[in-house]
């Protein structure tokens, strides 16, 4: 019935929505930022533990739509073990992919995150996918306690 939506709602997204990974409060986090999308009221809190410029742990709390939940869940998986610079680079690539700035998706770099490329065709939903990454960006820069997509 929802054939048209297969690119947007891939099975991986349903899976992460049903069973979000790293969905927990992190007691020993040394970065904690709240991301807010005033358009839809979605809120998430991102926790990072950064040791010597390497993200040794990432987790989140909050509630949102399937796209935003899957996006943050996938993100916490993929950034674990990456250096801050690597994570920033990934943020840029993800941003370009979801806003349609690059046609070619660098699959090697972006890996599983490619399942979120479908939001390009749904301008109203791009922010759902990028909220997690803007929150990560703020956490890496260590400037703000909370960010908003507007």
């Amino acid at each position: 019935m929802f054939e048209d939506l297969r690119d947007l709602y891939q099975e991986v997204i349903f899976d992460h929505n049903r069973n979000p990974r790293n969905f927990r409060v992190m007691d020993n986090a040394n970065r904690q930022v709240e991301g807010f999308n005033p358009l839809c009221g979605d809120r998430l809190t991102l926790f990072l533990k950064i040791d010597d410029h390497v993200i040794s742990d990432a987790s989140f709390q909050g509630s949102g739509c399937a796209i935003s939940t899957a996006s943050v869940s996938l993100m916490t998986e993929i950034v674990k073990g990456k250096t801050e610079d690597e994570a920033e680079a990934l943020f840029k690539q993800f941003h370009e992919m979801t806003t349609g700035k690059t046609e070619e998706i660098n699959l090697e770099a972006i890996g599983k995150l490619a399942v979120l490329a479908g939001v390009r065709e749904y301008p109203a939903r791009v922010k759902c996918a990028t909220l997690a990454w803007h929150t990560l960006d703020a956490a890496l820069k260590n400037e703000a306690q909370s960010i908003s997509t507007e």
């Binding site: 929802f2 939506l5 947007l8 709602y9 839809c40 979605d42 509630s63 949102g64 739509c65 399937a66 796209i67 939940t69 749904y122 109203a124 939903r125 759902c128």
Partner: peptide, 9 residues
């Protein structure tokens, strides 16, 4: 199921 997913679907 989040309202935005309902809306898109």
């Amino acid at each position: 199921i989040h309202p935005h997913d309902i809306g898109t679907m």
